[in-house]
Design a protein around this nucleic acid. Sequence first.
DNA 1: CTCGGAATGTAGCCTAGGCTACACTCTGTT
DNA 2: AACAGAGTGTAGCCTAGGCTACATTCCGAG
Lengths: 152, 152
Amino acid sequence: MSVPSVAPSIQPAQALPAEPTQASRFGKARSAQSGALLEDYVELISDLLASGGEARPTDIARRFGVAHATAIKTIGRLKREGLAVAKPYRGVFLTEAGDHLAARVRARHRVVVDLLLALGVPCEAAESDAEGIEHHVSDATLAAFARFLAQG
Amino acid sequence: MSVPSVAPSIQPAQALPAEPTQASRFGKARSAQSGALLEDYVELISDLLASGGEARPTDIARRFGVAHATAIKTIGRLKREGLAVAKPYRGVFLTEAGDHLAARVRARHRVVVDLLLALGVPCEAAESDAEGIEHHVSDATLAAFARFLAQG
DNA sequence: CTCGGAATGTAGCCTAGGCTACACTCTGTT
DNA sequence: AACAGAGTGTAGCCTAGGCTACATTCCGAG
């Protein structure tokens, strides 16, 4: 999980073998995907809460185009990860961590879409591709995007 | 699967409900991920065949940082999808389709990395992020990237 | 106040992608 | 020629993310 953290966040540095530059890239890209879903959920829930005031499993499922059971299962994961809270039949809410994640995800999404548009990508494709791309944009890359947009 | 197809490739157009712009984006991004792995495998196999002349399961596994059994399973998928052929203990080879896919993937990868570098992303991050990003770049977006690189 | 339909939740099944453990080639030495 | 060790392949297990089918709870009309 975890969107590019703005804060330092000391990681264990996993540098045991000290070489697998080759393999680690693939692994990173692969595991980024596990978390992409959570990020999307958190963002949507945040949107729903902000606008309508309610985030119900059925709404979420409809938005993502999945069965409600699938949404409920994922909401369960969100709870396990400490990103959301939900009591049966009472709707879903974000924890503080979830809120922060949502904010970062939303900001990153906007930057990615803006960048694509700035590069001349058609609006429809920009929105569509950004959905997949955003989850693989690191801090460094995001910063570069922002710099470019701020005029380069 | 399928990298942005240069050829037309008439798709069934799945436009039954005629509206779910919302949901379809997520679905597209999600299913793009299923295929990303195959694309990476095909590209690596192509590389191995081009350079050393041999693509053995163990080499592939080592490069991706996974167990050899995992690589073998994925090679099985490659065969099912008609992208590769392999006889027991004889190494893996690409079909014509696999070769074409590899070429397209490689070209796309280069464009994505070049774009990131052009935008000022540090080399290491560019390589790393491109690995995840490339699988979500549509034809339209790829074309825009190329246009930008060719000077815009 | 009750009843029916919609929303929720649960259970079970499937595939992809990982892993470990175990079995079976292959091959390069002796 | 035979054998050890590397490379291959198979089986079985796990999680994430989908689905369908079924059960439960809520709530707004009557």
